[in-house]
Amino acid sequence: MGTGFDAARVLRPRGLQFFGWFALLFFLASQAGGLLLTPPDRDMGHLQKIMYVHVPSAWMSLLAYAIVFGFGVMFLWKRDLKWDLMAAATAEAGIVFTGLALLTGSIWGRPTWGIWWTWDARLTSEAVLFIMYAGYLALRAMTDDEMRRARWSAAIAALGFLNTYIVYMSVRWWRTLHQIQSSPSTVDPQYVLFLRLNAFAFLFILIWFAASRYRVARLTRDIEESVEERALRPQTEGVHV
């Protein structure tokens, strides 16, 4: 079929394992730094520290869909299924960060805003993003035709990518309860430093998660192919294995 699948080219587990430990340690150090080394906020006190989880999660939820879209485009261009599997692996990681952003936002909102949830444009568009991740993954489970599945996945990824722009701009286009984006000029340098470190920590975890899922997807596909091949092989030996 010329799909270019080769088990030897699958990312080596050893390197992946090393990167996973690195990501975990970087994450723990960044979180500890944010929790222990930064002063409480003048208005919300220590509640500000949810920022180090909420904001990186939200960034990764947007970034992951952009990557899914990028891989989708690469598939349409190259017609190589490996790009489609990479897109799916990134979407699986992305939905986790989207869920985390919604969950930590809700937990943060209760004591500071006074509510768990409201249907303002930011919260709604992020919830729609979650549904678009779920839809992307659900649609993939519905068809066995790999090339067709890859084409449709790329189309949905384009819609999801459009939505990430709506999520980002929602607080500027519409009146929302959610505040507009902070910038280094509105955030104390101490918070900025640990927010950045945690953003990188979350990025490493996103990459590790997506790479691990991609590896599993490749191995699963290799096994399926070899089983199929064995089933189709003319049984000249006359022996069932």
Binding site: R42, T186, V187
Partner: peptide, 11 residues
Amino acid sequence: MVKHSNEYRPP
């Protein structure tokens, strides 16, 4: 509901 600004500063 309280609408927070985009500012975060130590006291």
